[in-house]
Structures are given as C-alpha cells and as structure tokens.
Amino acid sequence: MTDTTLMKIIKDHENRGWSKASEIKKHGYGLGCLMIWKKTEAPSQGVKVGLINDK
C-alpha cells in the first residue's frame, strides 16, 4: 500500500466518524496509525479504538 492509499483510507474513516489519534508509524512490516471512534450518537458505548495498517 502506498502512502497515498493509506492517506485515502484514513480520510475515508474520518468521513465515517473516526478520528486519527496518532501519527503514521511503522507497524509490523508496514505503516499504521491509531484511530478512535468519537461519534456522539452512541455515548453509552464509550470510545472504540481501531488500527489502520497497510500490511
């Protein structure tokens, strides 16, 4: 996955309500960043965490 593709995936996640919570860093054999879910429609569910990785 190229840097351009990774940035597109991050932007797509942000458009669905996720927020980027870290810089893009090496993760395993590729790159990744921490994303957190902060939509206000479901506050009782708390904060969800996901990792976008280019492996």
Score class of each variant (00 low, 15 high):
residue 15 N to G: 15
residue 28 G to Q: 05
residue 36 I to H: 02
residue 4 T to Y: 09
residue 22 S to R: 03
residue 48 K to W: 10
residue 39 K to S: 15
residue 13 H to P: 10
residue 20 K to M: 09
residue 4 T to Q: 10
residue 48 K to R: 14
residue 36 I to S: 04
residue 28 G to Y: 07
residue 9 I to L: 14
residue 41 E to D: 15
residue 42 A to Q: 09
residue 21 A to V: 05
residue 21 A to H: 00
residue 46 G to T: 04
residue 43 P to F: 11
residue 41 E to W: 11
residue 13 H to A: 02
residue 20 K to P: 06
residue 15 N to M: 05
residue 33 C to G: 12
residue 11 K to W: 05
residue 19 S to A: 09
residue 8 K to C: 11
residue 4 T to G: 05
residue 55 K to N: 15
residue 55 K to W: 10
residue 3 D to R: 01
residue 11 K to H: 03
residue 36 I to A: 04
residue 20 K to V: 11
residue 15 N to H: 00
residue 44 S to E: 15
residue 54 D to Y: 13
residue 16 R to V: 11
residue 2 T to P: 05
residue 2 T to D: 02
residue 27 H to G: 12
residue 34 L to D: 02
residue 43 P to M: 06
residue 49 V to S: 10
residue 31 L to G: 07
residue 50 G to V: 01
residue 18 W to F: 11
residue 5 T to Y: 04
residue 30 G to S: 08
residue 12 D to R: 06
residue 38 K to R: 14
residue 3 D to E: 13
residue 6 L to D: 12
residue 22 S to N: 03
residue 20 K to T: 02
residue 31 L to I: 01
residue 20 K to E: 03
residue 14 E to T: 13
residue 15 N to L: 04
residue 22 S to C: 09
residue 24 I to V: 15
residue 28 G to V: 09
residue 35 M to G: 07
residue 15 N to E: 14
residue 25 K to I: 13
residue 27 H to T: 11
residue 10 I to E: 13
residue 53 N to V: 15
residue 17 G to H: 03
residue 38 K to V: 12
residue 5 T to S: 10
residue 53 N to F: 10
residue 35 M to C: 02
residue 24 I to P: 06
residue 30 G to L: 12
residue 23 E to R: 08
residue 12 D to L: 08
residue 53 N to Y: 12
residue 2 T to I: 07
residue 45 Q to M: 15
residue 42 A to H: 14
residue 42 A to F: 15
residue 46 G to S: 04
residue 47 V to Y: 02
residue 4 T to D: 14
